[in-house]
């Protein structure tokens, strides 16, 4: 358990993970469930336990689409996507933590891809 990291994530997310009643609706509604190693309800629970480093190393951080389905449908108002975002930020803010850099972009482009996708990805994947 990393107390400092936990506090940092809680502060950054603004979420209260103690409101969770373990119903799993966030994971039930998540469109990226099958692509994730740790699912939204696990993010909430692991942050509660202070097991942040495991999450920071997980690919799951980059599978969340920030579609807010879990945020709007959580019966308890826990806002799991904001928890995921806070952990992801903790990861990309580390030295060498950027997942995407501008020089990687040209290879990803196709003629129809909207700019929106690139700026969003940079916002999500890099600091």
């Amino acid at each position: 358990m990393n107390k400092n990291l936990k506090e940092q994530v809680l502060r950054s997310s603004g979420a209260n993970v103690l409101k969770c009643m373990r119903c799993g609706k966030c994971s039930a509604t998540c469109p990226s469930y099958d692509e994730m190693e740790y699912h939204p309800h696990q993010f909430v629970y692991m942050v509660e336990k202070g097991d942040i480093e495991t999450l920071m190393k997980s690919e799951s951080l980059y599978r969340c689409l920030t579609c807010f389905a879990c945020v709007d449908r959580c019966p308890r108002g826990v806002e799991p996507a904001k928890v995921v975002e806070a952990v992801r930020l903790a990861a990309v803010r580390q030295q060498g933590g950027n997942r995407l850099s501008p020089d990687m972009i040209p290879d990803m482009l196709d003629e129809d891809l909207p700019q929106q996708a690139i700026v969003t990805a940079l916002r999500k994947y890099a600091k």
Partner: peptide, 14 residues
């Protein structure tokens, strides 16, 4: 146990 109803711990999401 008798009626074999499938109780699943979790919520429906969609």
């Amino acid at each position: 146990e008798q009626y074999n109803v499938h109780y699943i711990k979790g919520m429906v999401g969609k």
